[in-house]
């Protein structure tokens, strides 16, 4: 099987790769978003702590 054949997916390339793409993006976002929000929260709490000192 050549690389072009692999990506062609027997003519179903659009359906297969869109499905895998959406799955990848949604799962990545679900994992990364709380990590970003946690960093922001920790920064906010640290600032507040410094002001109180």
């Amino acid at each position: 099987m050549t690389l072009a054949e692999f990506f062609y997916m027997g003519g179903y390339a659009f359906y297969v790769w869109t499905a895998y793409g959406i799955c990848f993006v949604v799962l990545l976002a679900t994992m990364i978003l709380p990590m970003i929000k946690r960093k922001q929260l920790l920064r906010k709490l640290a600032l507040k702590e410094q002001r109180q000192l």
């Binding site: 692999f6 027997g10 003519g11 359906y15 499905a19 799955c23």
Partner: peptide, 19 residues
């Protein structure tokens, strides 16, 4: 996506099954 054969009825479209 690579090792499993295509489905005898659905061709490669069945590979969506894995997600």
């Amino acid at each position: 996506l690579y090792l499993a054969p295509a489905d005898y009825q659905q061709g490669d479209s069945y590979r969506i099954i894995y997600i």
